[in-house]
Amino acid sequence: MRHKRVLIAVLAFPVAFLGWVAWTFITSPFFGDPMSQVEPVPCEEAMQYADQDGLPKGAHDAKCTALSWLDTTYTAHFTITRTDLDAWLNDAYPGTHLTLEDCLGAPADACAHIELNPPADGGAMAIDISVRYGEDSTAVVDFEPFDV
């Protein structure tokens, strides 16, 4: 009897895993891949997720999205002057320095990773920022707060 229980326990995980894989494969064409369903959201919502009242002063051409499945990631993509970006970062996240080392292969000129301890009231636990510098002292910013 004990061997039967052990055998059932050993087989339960692979069977459950294969069932999940089959279910995902069968339902994906009908419901889409949940990891690729990026939804447009108001930028105020994206910024509030990281406890910011809105976009930084001087930001324009903003587009914001959310991706939620097992975790949540918002992206605020905007253009701002380098001076306004530096002032906002200094005010919102003191001590944050944009460096190339934090880019980890991302196509950017400078990046930062910010751990929020404690997490933001809005839900974010960390923020990734990547910046591409323009020729006219502008910066194109991807501000990405996330919870896992």
Rank of each mutant, 00 (worst) to 15 (best):
M1Q: 08
R2V: 13
R2Y: 09
R2F: 03
K4N: 09
R5L: 14
R5W: 15
V6A: 11
L7N: 01
I8Y: 10
A9R: 14
A9P: 08
A9E: 07
V10G: 09
V10D: 07
A12D: 05
F13M: 14
F13D: 10
F13G: 08
F13A: 14
P14K: 08
P14Q: 09
V15P: 04
A16Q: 05
F17A: 14
L18N: 03
G19F: 14
W20A: 14
V21C: 10
V21Q: 15
A22D: 04
A22K: 12
W23P: 01
W23A: 14
T24A: 15
T24G: 10
F25H: 08
I26Q: 02
S28E: 15
P29R: 06
P29N: 11
F31R: 02
G32V: 06
G32Y: 04
D33R: 13
M35G: 01
S36W: 03
S36Q: 13
Q37M: 14
Q37F: 09
Q37E: 03
Q37L: 15
V38C: 06
P40R: 06
P40N: 11
P40Q: 10
V41G: 01
P42W: 11
P42F: 09
C43R: 03
E45F: 03
E45I: 09
A46Q: 03
A46I: 01
M47S: 01
Q48S: 10
A50T: 01
G54W: 02
G54Y: 02
P56V: 04
A59R: 03
H60M: 12
D61F: 12
K63R: 13
T65K: 08
A66C: 08
L67F: 00
L67H: 05
L67W: 01
S68P: 08
D71S: 09
D71N: 15
T72V: 13
T72A: 12
Y74V: 05
Y74H: 08
T75P: 03
T75G: 09
A76C: 04
A76I: 00
H77Y: 13
T81H: 07
T81R: 03
T81V: 04
T81E: 02
R82K: 15
D86C: 06
W88Q: 01
W88M: 05
N90T: 10
A92W: 04
A92G: 12
Y93H: 15
P94Q: 11
P94R: 05
P94I: 08
G95M: 00
T96E: 07
L98I: 02
T99Y: 09
T99Q: 11
L100K: 07
L100I: 12
L104Q: 14
L104R: 14
A106N: 01
P107V: 13
D109W: 06
D109L: 11
D109M: 13
H113W: 14
E115G: 09
P118A: 05
G122W: 00
G122Y: 02
G123M: 00
M125E: 11
M125C: 05
M125G: 10
I127D: 01
D128N: 15
I129D: 00
S130K: 07
V131E: 05
V131R: 02
V131L: 04
R132V: 15
Y133R: 02
G134E: 12
G134I: 06
E135M: 11
D136Y: 01
D136S: 15
A139Y: 08
A139K: 03
V140L: 10
V140M: 11
V141Q: 00
D142R: 02
P145H: 05
P145W: 00
P145A: 03
V148I: 07
V148Y: 06
